[in-house]
Computed example of a mutant assay.
Amino acid sequence: MRTALVIGTGLIGTSIALALQSRGIQVYLADHDPAQAETAAALGAGTAEEPPGPVDLAVAAVPPAHVAPTLAAAIRRGCARAYLDVASVKGGPRRELEAMGCDLSAYLGTHPMAGKERSGPLAATAELFEGRPWVLTPAEGGDTEVLNIALELVALCRAVPVVMEADAHDRAVALVSHTPQLVSSLVAARLQGADETAVRLCGQGIRDVTRIAASAPRMWMDILSANPGPVADVLSEVSADLERTVAALRALEAADDEARAAGARGVEDVLRRGNAGRERVPGKHGAAPAAYEIVSVHIGDQPGELARIFADAGRAAVNIEDVRIEHATGQQAGFIQLMVEPQAAPVLAAELRERGWSIRQ
């Protein structure tokens, strides 16, 4: 691959362009909003000029509803050797292209499993896809050359290729991406009319659960409108669990001992199933999740504090496996949680205490 055309210069398209451009690929940028393409070009993602001839790869980085018309126009112009899209839904766009009578021998649907709460080219980064799964959905009898170009794109973006059937992909993302977005939004919506005193009690748990609720509604309407059936199926199962959990909680208020015991079993059941499901979420480097120890350290909200604590952890020869910050309400301070291998926790805690850090037991 020497040349590429990226159609759509939002977060994903511009990030792809930045990754390709940084690895020596000449990238041409197109967008329905020329100003956005110019912004991406100014960031170093390529040029907003028209390509002088057919490119090696055209990538449609547009919302699911626009994939088919965008690619159909590109295919009819013959602007590339291979055509990919990176939309979060795969079955629908391919069926739309087939209905339009397009020759799909040079097309392959893909989906990089990466993103941010922020959108647009200014949020883009060449490192967005590093280590992230990138789903490829080749059709039966597809062109091997197109698959090879897609694999080259994934490699250049330093992502991890995963091959799936298109409709199986759509059911999977309904479970692991689209439904969590709605559930996060549903929880966050409870805060809209909540008493200010209650909101001031928000801690790390509610921040974790509602983080993705900050995502752009328009973007998610595009995604959910393209995959409504599978998402509704998952939400229906969640709804059934909620009804049983509500009934179990009501039973805990009953005067009857047997009813309370049944309620307790019902609540415990959903908590235990949650534990079991959480254990299946891949951990670091895609491996099974590890049981890390947390060393929680009081840290001031001022420049240089994070660098200093990481440097001190390095002096202890301890590898930080993961990290999170818990902000203290109304204070210029908080706690940084350093997640390490269990045998390293006492070593790290002792080293940090010696260097003047306050450790929360």
Rank of each mutant, 00 (worst) to 15 (best):
M1A: 12
A4Q: 00
A4K: 01
I7W: 00
G8A: 02
T9V: 05
T9F: 15
I16K: 12
A17G: 06
I25K: 04
I25P: 12
Q26H: 11
V27F: 00
V27C: 11
Y28H: 12
Q36R: 14
Q36K: 11
Q36M: 15
A37R: 02
E38L: 13
T39L: 08
A40I: 10
L43Y: 03
A48F: 01
E49Y: 08
G53V: 02
V55I: 05
A60S: 01
A61W: 10
V62P: 00
P63H: 02
P63V: 03
A68Q: 03
P69A: 05
T70A: 03
A73L: 09
I75N: 08
G78T: 02
G78I: 06
V86I: 09
A87N: 04
G92K: 15
G92F: 08
C102F: 00
C102Q: 06
L108A: 01
P112I: 00
A114T: 06
G120H: 00
T125L: 06
G131E: 04
P133M: 05
E145G: 15
L147E: 15
L153Q: 01
V154C: 10
V154L: 08
L156T: 08
V162W: 01
D167M: 14
H169K: 01
D170N: 07
R171M: 10
V173D: 03
L175W: 06
V176C: 09
V183W: 03
V183H: 03
S184P: 03
S184E: 01
S185D: 12
A188L: 04
R190I: 08
A194T: 00
D195A: 15
E196N: 11
T197P: 13
A198I: 11
A198R: 07
V199K: 12
L201E: 05
C202I: 14
Q204T: 14
D208E: 09
V209W: 03
R211Q: 07
A213V: 04
A214S: 13
L224Y: 01
A226I: 00
A226L: 06
A226N: 02
L235P: 02
A240R: 15
L249Q: 09
A254R: 00
A254C: 07
D256V: 03
A259L: 12
A261H: 15
R265H: 13
V270N: 10
R278Q: 07
R280Q: 13
K284I: 09
K284Q: 10
K284L: 10
A290M: 08
A291H: 14
Y292T: 03
H298D: 13
H298T: 14
I299W: 06
G304K: 02
E305I: 09
L306Q: 06
R308V: 01
R308G: 10
F310N: 11
R315H: 13
R315C: 11
A317Q: 15
A317Y: 07
V318C: 01
N319K: 09
I320T: 09
R324C: 14
I325N: 13
I325L: 08
E326C: 15
E326A: 14
A328R: 15
A328C: 11
T329Q: 15
G334R: 00
I336G: 14
L338D: 06
M339R: 11
Q343S: 14
A344E: 10
A345C: 03
E351Y: 08
G356N: 04
I359C: 04
Q361H: 13
